[in-house]
Design a protein around this nucleic acid. Structure first.
Lengths: 108, 108
DNA sequence: CGTTTATATTAGTGAATACTTAAATCAGGG
DNA sequence: CCCTGATTTAAGTATTCACTAATATAAACG
């Protein structure tokens, strides 16, 4: 599944926003999403599965709970795809800025 | 239609890549896409309509031809959405870099 | 004008997918 | 163990949407 297929769904984007704030158990995510989008816990779980399978999120067990965290690699890929359009809104970088802007993406 | 709904389709992404290189007539885009994706001119025209309606592309007439150009505003919105995840792959910026990185996005 | 070239639109169809309900796992107490 | 809570999985359904084929529009040109 391509990164943009994953990000297309507003529920999944919202889940990623929540995970960007920090780790959350499946149930915690579900509580927020159920309220905001009026869908069932099962639906949220299915979305979490998509995020897992596509590499946007990682999981670890904590007893019966499943703790989710964001994995930014696929988001970084999206960011990289946007590079070819950046010149449209980042008109003129001077040498130093270019150097740093490049570094910001290349550097681990 | 949300930006990510538009970007979800690989044909539309490819069209935007072509337009990122410069303006192109509908027929020029169609020629490339027909070859690369094996779809008809009508399908390409429908994708161009989506890009128009969603604000990703602009059109001007040149006789019977329609010249398309990319409009980066919606792409910039996507870039802004990614901001909340940047800290995951841009660990520590020093003061100068932060200043410049901020400027890169805020400045017109 | 009639024809050709460039492009868009319409109608219909099949595949993908997000949802619901129901059932299955599975860890942790009492 | 059995029960409860937390979570996932399965099956079925409805909607969305990208496509094709056919048609429409409209400029260019003899």
């Amino acid at each position: 599944m391509h990164a943009f297929d994953v990000l297309r769904d507003p529920v999944r984007r919202r889940i990623l926003e929540l995970l960007a704030e920090g780790e959350h158990a499946s149930g915690e995510v579900a509580a927020v999403i159920e309220r905001e989008f009026a869908i069932t816990q099962a639906a949220v779980s299915q979305h979490l599965k998509v995020l897992r399978d596509s590499g946007f999120a990682t999981v670890r067990a904590d007893g019966a709970r499943r703790i989710y965290a964001v994995n930014s690699d696929p988001l970084q890929d999206v960011d990289a795809w946007l590079d070819r359009f950046r010149r449209f809104w980042e008109p003129k970088l001077d040498a130093l800025e270019t150097e740093i802007a490049r570094g910001r993406r290349k550097r681990t």
